[in-house]
Design a protein around this nucleic acid. Structure first.
Length: 392
DNA sequence: AAACCGGGGGT
DNA sequence: ACCCCAGGTTT
């Protein structure tokens, strides 16, 4: 008896399941069985094979939780019960029905999609996920959901809930938004589908809904139900995150955007115990505080010699400098960037009678009287170090 | 205030 | 083909 050949794996996006990841043969069956007992069965878009209602609910659910969608869904299908009615409706009516749901570009796509289904597909939704995904507002995951619910097509979904379930169950580290992680998950999603059987269509409905329900109600972001009761989840027995205590760390959160690093060169013009400060503009960082003068110096690559020369040049506006030396470096961390401060100390042999009267307000401050002025924390630190006479 | 989210759109 | 955004809500 010739065996049926294995179903062709779609070559596009076919990510092999890494050899170290094992997909239990009964993964799908466990989800299916769990859904039939513990999943949701009475949502207004369930218990139908009407692709119009299924599609509409999937689009609404892309952005809003079930509880908020229900009323909108009911109103929408009451007024526009078919894809033909929607396609023929004026945009104003569609937007009015959507008003309050947010993400209005999706409402516009919804309308366009309806018109396209009517004009290009004879008013009947395709059942092939690849074809569905060509329609406006329908991506790969939504296409699979529509195909599964409306026609029992065996095709994997991968929404945020499923990504969380997979990251935890298979112990996948790395942010799911990353290309490699996401494509690995699509591979797993394919591999984890229920094995084809006599009840494939029904199984796919239960499986697809089951993954959604599991992610939404049991394998939640904050407190997965398995922590209190392992039996709450049909996957808990061999869930990697549960086994290793990683439910709090998986899925890996989006990496904090690398804080940009800026650098600046500050000059400490010293005359005896006095140091020259200047007033910062009211707006911007450290607005209205007295700070050290900063020099517009090329800092990449940083050349200490050059910076010292420039510091000397700067100081000549105030008298006769005797020497300039690197005094140290200091990193100050803001919320939105790191500032590398390089400080150059310039000692004045003599001050000129008249200082420049243009530029920001300036004054001398004694290192023994640092409390007299408000200075930015890192500048204060630099000054305190000077006061103690030390380097850094 | 920061993460999250499926798809679209820009490069 | 890849990266990033828009536009909301949730934590």
């Amino acid at each position: 008896m010739p065996r049926k050949s294995a179903p062709a794996v779609s070559s596009v996006n076919a990510a092999a399941v890494p050899p170290d990841i094992h997909v239990p043969a009964d993964f799908g069956a466990r989800v299916v069985d769990w859904q039939r007992v513990h999943g949701r069965h009475d949502l207004p878009w369930q218990n139908t094979r009407d692709p119009y209602r299924i599609w509409l609910s999937e689009i609404m659910l892309q952005q809003t939780q079930v509880s908020a969608v229900i009323d909108y869904f009911q109103r929408f299908v009451a007024q526009l019960p078919t894809v033909q009615a929607l396609a023929a409706a004026p945009a104003d009516q569609v937007m009015a029905l959507w008003a309050g749901l947010g993400y209005y570009s999706r409402a516009r796509n919804l309308h366009r999609c309806a018109m396209q289904v009517v004009s290009d597909h004879g008013g009947r939704f395709p059942t092939d996920p690849a074809v569905l995904a060509t329609l406006p507002g329908i991506g790969r995951s939504t296409a699979a959901a529509i195909a599964a619910f409306s026609a029992g097509v065996r095709s994997p979904i991968l929404d945020g809930n499923v990504k969380r379930v997979f990251a935890r169950f298979f112990g996948i580290h790395g942010h799911p938004g990353e290309r490699v992680i996401e494509s690995r998950m699509w591979g797993l999603a394919e591999a984890a589908l229920p094995v084809p059987g006599p009840r494939q269509a029904d199984d796919m409905v239960a499986y697809t809904q089951g993954l959604m329900d599991l992610g939404a109600t049991v394998c939640s972001r904050g407190k997965p139900a398995c922590l209190a009761d392992a039996l709450a989840c049909p996957l808990s027995a061999d869930c990697v995150a549960r086994r290793d205590g990683l439910t709090a760390t998986l899925p890996t959160p989006k990496p904090r955007a690398a804080v940009p690093e800026r650098s600046t060169v500050m000059v400490m013009v010293r005359h005896g115990r006095d140091v020259l400060l200047q007033l910062r503009p009211d707006s911007g960082v450290w607005g209205g505080l007295w700070s050290l003068p900063e020099m517009p110096v090329a800092t990449v690559p940083f050349d200490p010699e050059l910076a010292e020369q420039e510091a000397l040049g700067y100081a000549r506006a105030f008298g006769e400098p005797s020497r300039a030396d690197m005094a140290g470096e200091l990193v100050h961390v803001f919320t939105h960037f790191r500032l590398l401060i390089r400080a150059i100390r310039v000692d004045m042999a003599a001050l000129s009678l008249r200082e420049p009267d243009s530029g920001p307000a300036r004054r001398w401050l004694s290192l023994d009287d640092l409390d007299a002025l408000g200075t930015p924390a890192p500048v204060r630190k630099l000054l305190e170090m000077q006061a103690r006479g030390g380097l850094f």
